[in-house]
């Protein structure tokens, strides 16, 4: 049922939206279409999570990690892009699994914008944070990402530049440029690279400092209260 709905979304609704954009809107309204697609991609995660009827303990651990990420972002608000959100999200993905990683990321993006202001960028941030947490969980399960500081830092830095920066710069092209071509994309990436580098540096620093103690704390909680390992 779930996979059916997810594949329905991916195979029919998303192409239909793109087709609508090309036919009805004359393929000019990139922002609206890309926003819809980003929203669709988050629906399956929400549905899987809701239909599983999660336990209170699981919910509240996700809420705590999200709150730590949000509080961390607001603690460093005076330094633009220097935020620990991504580090916390990666730790969550590694320790609690891919799904929790996605939820912590998406929720952190969503809730922190209640403090910083919602805008058309919110779904993009939610998706970018979420997918990095998801990837961290998947890669850890596959054994490609270990609990070593060095590996986590490398993953954090790369994902901040490639995935978060890549997606957010793409979003600013669809948002600001109103035409979609190589020049506009290159300009967006060139102007965004400093922000991405700062963000990557912040992620690496926070992962370097936080990864071991946070993972240990989460392990301790999991052992002490017998949270199910998945």
């Amino acid at each position: 049922m779930r996979t059916l709905l997810a594949s329905l979304l991916i195979l029919i609704v998303i192409p239909a939206t793109i087709a609508l954009g090309i036919v009805v809107l004359d393929d000019r309204n990139y922002y609206f279409i890309s926003l819809l697609i980003i929203l669709y991609t988050m629906i399956p995660f929400a549905m899987v999570f809701e239909s599983r009827k999660p336990q209170a303990r699981e919910l509240i651990i996700i809420a705590v990690l999200t709150a730590i990420a949000v509080a961390g972002r607001s603690a460093f608000f005076m330094l633009p892009q220097f935020k620990p959100v991504l580090a916390i999200v990666i730790i969550a993905g590694v320790s609690m699994g891919a799904e929790a990683g996605f939820l912590v990321g998406a929720m952190a993006g969503f809730v922190s914008n209640f403090f910083f202001g919602q805008g058309p960028w919110t779904p993009w941030q939610m998706f970018s944070f979420g997918i990095i947490g998801f990837l961290a969980g998947i890669l850890f399960k596959k054994g490609w990402l270990k609990r070593s500081k060095a590996l986590l830092c490398v993953f954090g830095g790369l994902s901040a530049i490639l995935i978060y920066g890549g997606l957010m710069n793409l979003s600013s092209v669809t948002l600001f440029a109103s035409t979609f071509n190589k020049e506009a994309l290159l300009a967006a990436y060139a102007s965004g690279i400093w922000f991405d580098l700062v963000h990557a540096a912040a992620t690496v620093i926070f992962l370097f400092l936080l990864s071991r103690p946070m993972l240990e704390k989460l392990d301790r909680i999991k052992t002490k209260y017998g949270l199910i390992e998945r």
């Binding site: 809701e50 999200t66 709150a67 509080a71 939820l103 809730v111």
Partner: peptide, 20 residues
């Protein structure tokens, strides 16, 4: 529509000032 996610959402909103 999404009871679990909205519960997380409201808990996060409460946790942030509480953590501070």
């Amino acid at each position: 529509i999404v009871p679990a996610l909205s519960l997380i959402f409201s808990m996060v909103l409460r946790f942030v000032p509480r953590f501070r």
